[in-house]
Design a protein around this nucleic acid. Structure first.
Lengths: 196, 196
DNA sequence: GTCTATAAATCGATAGAC
DNA sequence: GTCTATCGATTTATAGAC
């Protein structure tokens, strides 16, 4: 410690501040979190925080971009573009779980966005793109006869997204992701509570 | 119209105001909605709104109570307390979907609560009670050998809640509830996308 | 039961010194 | 890159007339 040392964390880059901010956004909710809250959590003043980010919405945008940049590449992989629709869906679901756990706070924030600001509407639009891609694939699988009769594609797609996304509500970062992805995929395709 | 008539809706009771408020809470988010927003949506002034409700949090509490008063009786019905665990679970899931659709805005609000205020923490606690009851029943079903081998009870319970609750994100009020309850229950127990 | 007016606190954001 | 100080708008809530 040199002279003039202060009670403060090692030193913040923009990435570190974003991490702190997203953590606060998740525990308090985006709207309920003030810039004062954020700067206190980061150990600097409000003004210093504004030196690194243009404002509250800029922080939200950066976080949402990170989540979307994790999710969309899943759709571009070979395993998601070639082969039988059902196998492609299984790969996408597993990929979603992996990204969801790896980028947990960012994806959590993305899934809570409601569309109040332009940034939020943009993120919502991107989410709908992703879901529409999955929904189209579900319809393909049903049309190809890979799915048992009586399954309504639109409903199945919504329930599938709901099931996968609900994992953010209890997932812990850095656990056995592969096992979790397997288990969730099995639950989606064979039932959460399959009878013997 | 008598003399002095104003451009205003028919006349509000507390129930009507709660309905308006919950609608605003859902579209804008609770924290992002101001008392000014609420009174404008109701067609009265802020002061008039305070005449009917002590404040913003009192509105939230009334809404959350309504949601919980719809959900908990599901657990008390005969069909939820007697018979094989798996059949009881099926009945509860169907009941959840029915209440969820019948009380859509109130349940939606309940599922978005994060625990910022005392009211929110109370509602979260009640939610956990409900989920714990379901989780215990899932474990019973697994222990009784009603479920195919390899299903982890704690995970299955979480995924089941996630699947059911995700319905609020796209459900429309006043549709064919029975059919929806059937479809969601089948997806939960036999798979969202069961292979042929 | 509704209104106008306003208090008291907090909000996001900026100016400018060091 | 951090700070103190502050602006202007907005927020929850109340006082008091009609």
């Amino acid at each position: 410690m040199t002279s003039g040392a202060r009670v403060r964390r090692p030193s913040h880059g923009p990435g570190s501040l974003l991490e702190v901010a997203v953590g606060e956004f998740i525990t308090r909710g985006y709207d309920a979190t003030s810039m004062e809250d954020l700067s206190r959590a980061a150990g600097i003043t409000k003004s210093s925080f504004y030196h690194h980010f243009a404002g509250k919405e800029a922080l939200l945008r950066a976080a949402l971009e990170r989540a979307l940049d994790g999710l969309f590449p899943i759709l571009d992989s070979d395993a998601a573009r070639t082969g039988p629709p059902l196998a492609r869906l299984r790969h996408i679901v597993r990929g979603q779980i992996a990204v969801l756990v790896a980028e947990l706070p960012y994806v959590t924030l993305l899934l809570r966005v409601r569309g109040n600001t332009e940034t939020e509407r943009w993120a919502l639009g991107r989410r709908r793109e992703f879901d529409a891609h999955v929904a189209a694939l579900v319809r393909e699988a049903v049309d190809a006869g890979e799915i048992r009769a009586g399954v309504e594609p639109a409903l199945a797609a919504r329930l599938l997204s709901g099931l996968v996304n609900s994992v953010v509500d209890w997932a812990k970062p850095g656990r056995g992701t592969t096992t979790l992805a397997d288990d969730v995929a099995r639950a989606a395709f064979e039932g959460i509570l399959p009878a013997r």
